[in-house]
């Protein structure tokens, strides 16, 4: 079922606000904590750092894709 344009815009705005709050918390707590540890790894073992860096960005890509899709679905269901 397709949403009316005004309803879709409102849903999208709510999604953006919820997402922004989640991102702010994530950046402050999770990424903030990783900073020093990754710096140490970067200085001492570049190969391990490279593997962990790639795994981190892939994991974040997959998880955020799931989060954004879930939020979109949830808000659409509520709007319906």
């Amino acid at each position: 079922m397709k949403l009316k344009p005004s309803l879709a815009a409102r849903s999208f705005l709510i999604e953006l606000i919820v997402y922004a709050a989640l991102v702010a918390a994530y950046v402050l707590f999770v990424i903030g904590l990783l900073n020093a540890w990754l710096h140490g790894l970067y200085d001492h073992n570049k190969t391990l750092y490279a593997i962990i860096a790639l795994l981190l960005i892939i994991t974040q890509g997959v998880v955020l894709e799931m989060v954004t899709s879930f939020l979109l679905k949830l808000i659409r269901l509520r709007s319906d």
Partner: peptide, 16 residues
């Protein structure tokens, strides 16, 4: 990678 991770949080929603 820290810069990439922070940037990507915005890019994820934008890409959709």
């Amino acid at each position: 990678i820290m810069i990439a991770l922070v940037m990507h949080t915005g890019a994820a929603i934008g890409a959709q």
